[in-house]
Write a protein that binds this DNA or RNA. Structure first.
Length: 352
DNA sequence: AAGGCGGGGTG
DNA sequence: CACCCAGCCTT
């Protein structure tokens, strides 16, 4: 067999599994114990998020919500507060909804059929396969970013995996190489291989698949998988009000759709801040001299320029309600705040 | 099929 | 600055 011919599926799995025994990651927090609940939480946190970022969030989340019952019983604000800073907040809302569905409809346990798991909110085909294989050794394939990278390079699959046809090819390949009897170790091994060897700067000399890798045989495996078509991102601007009163700072709950949905944030003024306060709060504000500097926040699909304006509430008639609260950063437990808002609020306050 | 949805790490 | 990361959901 020549150098760049793909090995039979059994040889592929054997090479990956042998490598895993010695070089895989065996001490990630969600691996001990790898219960369906812990694997599920970790897999959702790991969607589009790197392991090193997830670990401290996972520890805090599990300490507060140790099982599906405690998560189902929690308030949504509490769940979001433990997710704040991780991003993609629909994940937290879906996680909460899913916990309630598991408790009310599935006796607090995940179904055994792949399609039933993939039908739950926030769980797609790959996450469903990961939950069932990593926690129960069920024979399901996965296709996360690591597996896509390894397979696209090994089989020299051209094109961007965001394209349906490319994704379908990769799924077929993943199904073909996943062994029936050791799907748990194999899936973990593929993710470890993708994260530690077959990554941005691949270390092919350490790869168990190097002798049969088409991408390497072609000369440059990093041309696979194909890149996402690039688009230029627009600049948006906003004014955020830091209004002091009632011993704290005024926060508003963001709407259920759009960016930072469901989180608490600073009020955004359209137009003149004092006019905004009179119309929206029914109270005057006095603008203060010391406003923080303008800050810029980068999203994947746009840039946001935030102009902070500090003010003081002139009368104490504005009360908290379901969508409005007064937050004292020094003594209150932090609610779910977007990362740039958290940074803004927890800067040093002027002593006045 | 395409776009929305965060934030941090890295080059 | 750009791109990437244990994706999913809506339109």
């Amino acid at each position: 067999m020549s150098a760049a011919d793909p090995a039979p599926a059994e040889d592929f799995a054997t090479a990956v599994l042998d490598w895993f025994e010695r070089h895989g990651r065996h001490d990630l927090p969600w691996q001990h114990p790898a219960t369906p609940y812990r694997v599920w939480i970790s897999e959702v946190m790991l969607q589009q998020t790197q392991v090193s970022t997830v670990i401290p969030y996972f520890e805090r989340f599990l300490a507060r919500f140790p099982d599906v019952e405690s998560l189902a019983a929690a308030d949504r604000d509490d769940v979001l507060a433990h997710w704040a800073g991780l991003g993609y907040y629909a994940r937290a809302r879906n996680l909460h909804r899913c916990a309630r569905m598991l408790v009310s409809q599935h006796n607090g346990e995940f179904p055994h059929a792949l399609d039933d798991v993939a039908a739950l909110p926030g769980i797609g085909r790959s996450t469903a396969g990961a939950i069932l294989s990593l926690s129960r050794n069920a024979p399901h394939a996965i296709l996360d970013g690591n597996v896509k990278r390894v397979l696209a390079r090994y089989y020299a699959v051209p094109g961007w995996p965001g394209q349906t046809a490319v994704a379908r090819r990769l799924w077929t390949l993943s199904e073909a190489v996943t062994p029936r009897r050791r799907a748990r170790d194999f899936n973990q091994a593929m993710m470890d291989l993708g994260a530690t060897v077959c990554n941005r700067q691949p270390q092919c000399q350490r790869c168990p698949l190097r002798s049969d890798c088409r991408g390497l045989a072609e000369g440059d495996p990093t041309v696979y998988p194909g890149r996402r078509p690039r688009r230029q991102k627009p600049l948006r601007q906003t004014t955020m009000l830091i209004i002091h009163g009632h011993g704290g700072i005024l926060l508003e709950r963001r709407p259920d759709t759009g960016i930072w949905a469901g989180l608490w944030s600073l009020p955004e003024a359209t137009g003149d801040p004092e006019t905004w306060a009179r119309e929206q709060l029914g109270a005057g504000i006095q603008l203060l001299e010391e406003s923080p500097a303008t800050l810029r926040h980068e999203f994947t699909h746009f840039s946001l320029e935030i102009q902070p304006v500090r003010g003081r509430l002139m009368d104490e008639t504005v009360v908290a309600d379901n969508d409005r609260l007064w937050y004292d950063p020094l003594s209150d437990e932090a609610p779910g705040l977007p990362a740039p808002v958290h940074r803004l609020i927890h800067q040093k306050e002027p002593s006045e």
